[in-house]
Amino acid sequence: MRTVTLLISTYNWPEALELILLSVKSQTSMPDEIVIADDGSDQRTKSIIEKYQSIFKIPLKHVWHEDKGFRKTIILNMAIAKATSDYIVQIDGDIIIHKRFIEDHLKFAKENSFVRASRAYIDERTTKGIMKRKQFNLHAFSKGITNVFSVLRIPLMWPVFETSYKNKGNEVYEIHGCNMAYWRKDIIKVNGYNELFNGWGPEDKELIARMMNAGIQKRFIKLGALAFHLYHKENSRKMLEKNTELFEETIAKKLVYCEKGINQYL
């Protein structure tokens, strides 16, 4: 029986993190553990985590480092190193998950592959209301959802979107770090996230490029593993050009391993 870790990345948005943890609490299939990759949040986030550590019957681990700017690749590597499960489902700290989210990911999981999944966007006004009411039971027809098709759940249709045609053209390296899944042994094989990425950029795309170069298959689950993205202002893009160069180098050189990665923490 495979075990599963839910990995949540977060930074100084404890109100959203609490909504996520409430949505985890209502899962039809609970993860074996939750690991929170905290990119330097203050005491408010720690307090929320401590509250839910006393509520959950599964381990809830808090992996934190000092706030020195956007260092998501580093904290994700540190958190993955602390995970103990075979399979990791990864979301961001702005994602509320459907009650069958973990169940769907587990049903879809297959050896020697990683999974791209979708998310729907919630508009700004609705997000404020959700935060105020602590509403976490969302569905495709909830108010303020901007792309309903991304959060319809139709398992019979999964095989249609799983096929490789979705990976042609610009879709080849398309991935959403806010909703993806992979085997822990596979991400360790390519040395995890590339810590040369500094600031916001396509760190998730660079990771999966190395995984595909290593022969690990990309699969796409659509109409399942539903996730709802809370509205927030975009991160700074000032490092995007440099980070994109790293991504393009991985593609051009068919790299499978990054020199500065998860091996530092294992």
Rank of each mutant, 00 (worst) to 15 (best):
P202D: 05
L207P: 11
D86S: 07
G224W: 03
E162C: 04
F114C: 05
V4D: 01
G201I: 01
T5P: 13
Q43H: 12
S41Y: 06
R184W: 00
A227R: 08
S236Q: 09
T5N: 08
N167D: 14
Y173T: 09
Y11T: 01
L207M: 13
L76G: 08
K238F: 14
E174L: 09
G199C: 03
K134M: 07
I187N: 02
N191K: 04
D204S: 11
E234K: 13
N147K: 12
V172A: 05
R44M: 02
F247L: 10
M78H: 07
D104E: 06
V4E: 03
A37S: 14
T244H: 01
I91S: 02
T10D: 10
I74T: 14
K46Q: 10
S118W: 12
K57H: 15
K242D: 07
A117V: 00
H232N: 10
E103I: 02
T84G: 06
N235C: 07
K82Q: 15
K168M: 12
I122G: 07
N137P: 00
S9P: 09
Y231N: 13
G69P: 12
K168Y: 11
E241V: 12
I34R: 05
D38G: 04
K205P: 11
E66M: 07
R100N: 15
I20C: 02
L6N: 09
I88P: 11
I145G: 09
S85N: 11
L138P: 14
F228P: 07
Q90V: 00
